[in-house]
Simulated assay, not measured.
Amino acid sequence: MYAEQAIAMITGGASGLGLAMAKRFATGGYTTIIIGRNAERLRQAKEQIGAHAFTYAFDLTHFDAIPDLVQSILNDHGHIDVLINNAGIHLKKPMQDIQNEEFIRVIQTNLIAPFVLSREVARHMLERQQGHILHISSMAAQYGIPQVMAYTAAKAGIEGMTRAMAVELSPHGIRVNCIAPGFIETDMSTGALDNDPERKERVLKRTPMGQLGCPNDVAEAAFFLSSPAARYITGEILRVDGGNAIGF
């Protein structure tokens, strides 16, 4: 744990993996700042997490307003120790049916927004010569998965950006890492797989551990990578996938 009250900032923290990470950091003693677009979901998340949680309703595709958001958080809380870029959107369509605007929207949300937010938070971290930036990627960045062209492009960019950021920032005390979740059991994925038994069977057969992951598996990995226990880890893409990437 950091010497002073540690603060973690998590985008998309009101549901799914983001909420699981927010809960883990809060129980680990962090003041947890959750960024999201849906004010009602943010309210519900805060109720679940308790007094350690603070919420800010914000659309991260409003790039020009991100510096003001970061400054507002710094004014309210003093510093940011951990930034987790988790917010994202999905698009499932055959390549030939994807409209330019749809592709751009996915890239803006999943790649450009994490860059802009990381840049602004890094400016603050550079002054303190410490911090951890954690990106959330996807196994889509490492596989060829049909009908997720824009999402795949964005997440591949996230993994490349992780390495580039680590090289630039780590000499100044700022570590940068990335988690690539495999098939994790969330409301969205459960519905999709339950409606496609053949695909679910294929996923499980390829996963050596023989089961889907749960959001807390990702949360625990995020907490470890952000802790002093991972002080010598930077530029890493950590798969949390039950061995799916090495399965046959």
Results as ranks from 00 to 15, higher is better:
residue 133 I to M: 04
residue 18 G to N: 06
residue 76 D to T: 15
residue 23 K to I: 13
residue 24 R to L: 02
residue 94 P to C: 06
residue 30 Y to I: 04
residue 93 K to Y: 01
residue 193 L to N: 04
residue 1 M to E: 10
residue 243 G to R: 09
residue 231 R to F: 07
residue 247 G to M: 07
residue 44 Q to W: 01
residue 170 S to I: 01
residue 14 A to W: 02
residue 159 E to G: 14
residue 225 L to C: 08
residue 103 F to V: 07
residue 98 I to W: 00
residue 15 S to F: 03
residue 178 C to L: 02
residue 110 N to K: 04
residue 219 A to M: 11
residue 36 G to W: 00
residue 178 C to F: 01
residue 125 M to Q: 10
residue 120 E to C: 09
residue 30 Y to L: 05
residue 104 I to M: 05
residue 67 P to N: 12
residue 1 M to P: 07
residue 203 V to N: 04
residue 27 T to Y: 08
residue 20 A to R: 08
residue 108 Q to S: 14
residue 248 F to L: 10
residue 178 C to H: 13
residue 181 P to S: 08
residue 135 H to A: 09
residue 91 L to E: 05
residue 241 D to N: 12
residue 245 A to K: 04
residue 62 H to L: 13
residue 208 P to A: 14
residue 47 E to F: 03
residue 136 I to D: 01
residue 131 G to A: 10
residue 91 L to G: 09
residue 12 G to I: 10
residue 24 R to V: 01
residue 221 A to P: 09
residue 130 Q to C: 10
residue 72 S to L: 11
residue 67 P to K: 12
residue 235 G to M: 11
residue 230 A to T: 09
residue 225 L to E: 04
residue 83 L to T: 06
residue 145 I to T: 10
residue 193 L to H: 00
residue 8 A to F: 06
residue 146 P to H: 01
residue 155 K to V: 03
residue 41 R to Y: 11
residue 70 V to S: 06
residue 146 P to R: 03
residue 238 L to S: 10
residue 213 G to V: 01
residue 223 F to Y: 15
residue 132 H to L: 03
residue 163 R to F: 00
residue 102 E to L: 07
residue 37 R to I: 11
residue 120 E to P: 03
residue 222 A to V: 03
residue 145 I to L: 14
residue 229 A to T: 07
residue 94 P to S: 02
residue 237 I to R: 05
residue 65 A to E: 12
residue 3 A to L: 08
residue 79 H to Q: 13
residue 144 G to K: 07
residue 119 R to A: 14
residue 91 L to I: 09
residue 223 F to E: 06
residue 51 A to V: 14
residue 216 N to Q: 13
residue 63 F to M: 08
residue 224 F to W: 14
residue 214 C to I: 15
residue 228 P to C: 10
residue 86 N to E: 13
residue 97 D to W: 11
residue 127 E to W: 01
residue 139 M to H: 02
residue 50 G to T: 07
residue 200 K to A: 15
residue 89 I to R: 05
residue 89 I to W: 00
residue 46 K to P: 05
residue 44 Q to N: 14
residue 18 G to I: 05
residue 184 I to Y: 01
residue 177 N to G: 08
residue 47 E to C: 07
